[in-house]
């Protein structure tokens, strides 16, 4: 015991490895602390309930909206838009981005435009999209598509560019054709990076969704939030935020799991 560092010392050492149990406990403690502060502020009457609902009030509202079916309806409305936009964007960006990272010609064609558009905030386009597409679901899908596509393009092209050259060279000296190098080497070598980029951009897609729903929507979690603000229903706003957070967490874990399953070799 004498020559082992104490737990406190280890926690204060930069870049050290802590036991898994410590990591979990610290994480749980933070959540408990978070709820305690919330309870203290709301139930303790520090902040009036008009601004900060109690956790039980949020739960109660959640249960009620779940029972009458409005909550599932709005969750599904949001999820549908996010998934449609995200999947469309990914389906376009994966092949195009990988091509961009693989073939300098494609890079030379696309990069200048992409880098220009990439720095335009998608919110600046919302009025334009409303004008062009209207305020229906398509408009929100367009916002997500536009917001994620260009970011994804750059991320996927970086993924392809980071595949070690000699991995391709090794395949060539083993008799691989350009087509088989592309499918048997570039594609599998890019897979872990692609999944990581998808995981990150999925989070962004949720952000754009809420932006789009706050501006123009008649359903969805952003929409009920906005409506609740008008009716001073702060508990509904909290509920919407909590659900968006929970959905984000679920998709994140799903991507982690997928990464482990299909690209476990890259751990």
């Amino acid at each position: 015991m004498a020559n082992r560092r104490s737990l406190v010392q280890r926690c204060l050492t930069p870049m050290t490895v802590l036991p898994r149990s410590t990591m979990v406990v610290v994480g749980v403690v933070m959540w408990v602390l978070f709820f305690l502060i919330w309870v203290g502020l709301s139930n303790g009457g520090v902040v009036p309930p008009m601004f900060l609902p109690t956790p039980t009030a949020v739960l109660h509202t959640g249960w009620e909206l779940l029972q009458n079916g409005t909550l599932p309806m709005h969750i599904w409305a949001s999820a549908r838009v996010v998934l449609t936009g995200f999947i469309l964007s990914s389906l376009l960006a994966i092949p195009l981005g990988l091509l961009m990272g693989t073939f300098p010609v494609v890079q030379a064609m696309l990069e200048p435009i992409v880098n220009f558009i990439r720095y335009l905030p998608v919110t600046a386009f919302v009025p334009l999209f409303i004008l062009w597409i209207g305020i229906g679901e398509e408009q929100r899908v367009a916002v997500i598509l536009f917001g994620t596509f260009f970011q994804q393009l750059i991320m996927f092209s970086d993924v392809a560019r980071q595949v070690p050259r000699d991995l391709l060279n090794a395949a060539y000296t083993l008799g691989a054709t350009r087509a088989s190098v592309t499918w048997q080497v570039l594609a599998p070598a890019s897979l872990p990076g692609v999944l990581d980029a998808l995981r990150v951009t999925m989070g962004w897609a949720w952000t754009y969704l809420v932006v789009a729903e706050l501006v123009a929507a008649s359903s969805g979690l952003g929409y009920i939030s906005l409506k609740a603000m008008r009716g001073f229903q702060v508990d509904v706003i909290f509920l919407a935020i909590a659900i968006i957070g929970a959905l984000g967490l679920v998709t994140d874990q799903a991507f982690r799991f997928l990464r482990l399953k299909v690209a476990g070799w890259a751990q």
Partner: peptide, 27 residues
């Protein structure tokens, strides 16, 4: 390049998504 000239590289170039057997069988 062609399979008539095999090469072993200065760095490691195993395909990490293939196991040893599949690596050797690649060509």
């Amino acid at each position: 390049p062609g399979p008539d000239r095999g090469m072993v590289f200065q760095g490691y170039t195993l395909f990490p998504w293939l196991n040893v057997r599949e690596n050797i069988a690649f060509g």
